[in-house]
């Protein structure tokens, strides 16, 4: 049986607690991480009080923040299943959810409606909305108008505007 890091997919040795490649926590120490299969046994075995059984988990248990690489700023994205990224300019009828113009988005080639970030079953996807300069994930251009899965740490370039996806899985 070969064990694989759930984040970077590199092999890890049995007994490892953190992935040596990406630093991701590999074990389930009290509380529960999404990497583990949740069974009544593991919940009982955890030395933290088990989560309240009456409260069902919300559909989305993951959060995403965007880290603007050039400036170090962080844009938290909360309270929604879809976020349109772009910039607001005069005379525009449809507004993006997240306006990137304060971050110098225009000169970096971000379109008015550039891309949409979506969350489904705790996974995040990005769809390029047919922007003029395109969208890249880790330097690979993605197909417009198609959902592409993104992972924690991926660098997303909207035109030349680079953000890093910071994804946190929680229960």
């Amino acid at each position: 049986m070969t064990l694989i890091c759930p984040n970077c997919k590199k092999p890890v040795l049995e007994g490892a607690i953190f992935c040596s490649e990406c630093g991701t926590k590999l074990i389930d120490s009290g509380g529960l991480s999404t990497a583990a299969i949740q069974t009544p046994e593991t919940i009982a075995a955890a030395d933290e009080p088990a989560p309240k059984p009456a409260a069902p988990l919300p559909v989305s248990s993951a959060h995403i923040n965007l880290h603007i690489i050039r400036t170090g700023q962080i844009i938290p994205l909360e309270g929604g299943a879809e976020f349109t990224l772009g910039r607001i300019s005069e005379g525009q009828s449809i507004m993006p959810d997240i306006d990137l113009s304060p971050y110098d988005a225009y000169s970096q080639g971000v379109s008015r409606l550039h891309a949409t970030l979506k969350v489904r079953d705790s996974l995040f996807y990005i769809e390029d909305l047919g922007s003029s300069n395109g969208t890249r994930i880790n330097n690979n251009k993605i197909t417009p108008l198609t959902d592409t899965l993104i992972h924690n740490g991926d660098v997303i370039a909207l035109g030349r505007f680079k953000v890093q996806a910071l994804i946190r899985q929680e229960n």
Binding site: E21, G72, N152, Q164, R168
Partner: peptide
Amino acid sequence: TSRLKNLATQLLTSGETALAHTVM
């Protein structure tokens, strides 16, 4: 670079933005 990128991600998730930025 892939390790450092992962380091920056981990630092950001634990709230160490200044250090993460140095790494980036």
